[in-house]
């Protein structure tokens, strides 16, 4: 299981590389709305695919909702859930 800090670091890295945000990802808080910060729906697809590569998971259809990709915190919680599902303790 990836630690919270490591998860957050990787998510921020993916957002910087694929989120096409007009703001510095380092300035975004855990709860800042990524779509309000300028992430387009297409960029969120790239973020999803890059996170799948970085965390070796796959987002199931049930998680394809705007709220899953709405903030760094939401992404971290979704990824933690996926990691738990795919690598049972």
């Amino acid at each position: 299981m990836t630690t919270t800090d490591e998860s957050t670091r990787r998510i921020r890295e993916v957002l910087a590389d694929h989120g096409r945000l007009p703001v510095d990802v380092g300035q975004l808080s855990d709860d800042d709305d990524l779509f309000q910060a300028g992430m387009t729906s297409h960029a969120s697809v790239n973020v999803m695919l890059a996170l799948e590569d970085a965390f070796d998971v796959e987002f199931p259809e049930a998680m394809l909702r705007k709220s899953t990709f709405a903030s760094i915190g939401a992404l971290r919680r979704a990824l933690a859930e996926l990691e738990t599902m795919e690598v049972p303790a």
Partner: peptide, 15 residues
């Protein structure tokens, strides 16, 4: 809805 063509071209190249 509107989508930037360059974003799609980049995504195809990357993924």
């Amino acid at each position: 809805d509107v989508t930037a063509v360059a974003e799609v071209a980049d995504a195809v190249a990357i993924f």
